[in-house]
Amino acid sequence: MYYSKEDLIEEDLAEIVWQLSSAAYSHGSPWSKEQFQVDIEQDTSRYLVMLKNKQLLGFISYHLVLDEAEFTHVVTHYEYQQQGLGSQLLDQVIQELSQKGVTKVFLEVRIANLGARHLYRKKGFKEINLRKNYYHHPVEDGIVMCLEIKEVSQ
């Protein structure tokens, strides 16, 4: 079952996405709970969470500006990784964005995150740029990827 940030209490949402991010990433969450809270309160931010039996399985957060979106997080609970949940979340969000008239979606991914890069390419994202030393803890380059939604929906 999917829920948007409007379906959840914002204070609870910041806590649960921070905890999930902390557990899902090998180097801990890239954002603090406070950073998630500030982001959630932004008019342009959207969160789609996947719950099963009241357990958070994953979420995608993004910023929506006019006809473009930028994913800030694509996270799956560590116990459920490699089971297709990230793919399901992406499909749901891309469908919703297409219905809202969004034409492009951007994201950054660690250069070493080959699994995520493969998934994004499978969904139609193309690598368009390299950001040197974009990530910290550890320092690593980031790859900017872009999805032209019109390509997916036609």
Rank of each mutant, 00 (worst) to 15 (best):
H27L: 06
P30A: 05
P30V: 10
W31Y: 12
W31P: 00
W31H: 00
K33H: 10
K33S: 08
E34G: 09
Q35E: 15
Q35G: 03
F36Y: 04
F36P: 01
F36M: 00
Q37Y: 14
V38M: 07
E41N: 13
Q42I: 01
Y47N: 04
Y47H: 09
L48N: 02
L48E: 07
V49N: 03
K52R: 15
Q55D: 10
L57Y: 13
G58K: 00
F59Q: 10
F59N: 06
I60M: 11
S61A: 11
S61C: 11
Y62G: 01
H63A: 02
H63N: 09
H63M: 03
V65H: 01
V65D: 00
V65M: 07
D67L: 04
E68S: 05
F71Y: 08
T72G: 04
H73N: 15
V74E: 00
V75I: 09
Q81I: 10
G84P: 01
G84R: 03
L85Y: 15
S87Q: 14
L89G: 04
L89P: 03
L89W: 01
L90Y: 05
D91H: 12
Q95S: 15
Q95K: 14
S98L: 04
V102Q: 02
V102T: 13
T103F: 04
R110A: 06
I111S: 12
A112E: 14
L114M: 11
L114Q: 11
L114P: 05
G115N: 10
G115W: 04
A116D: 09
A116G: 10
R117C: 02
R117E: 05
L119A: 08
L119I: 14
L119S: 10
Y120D: 07
Y120E: 02
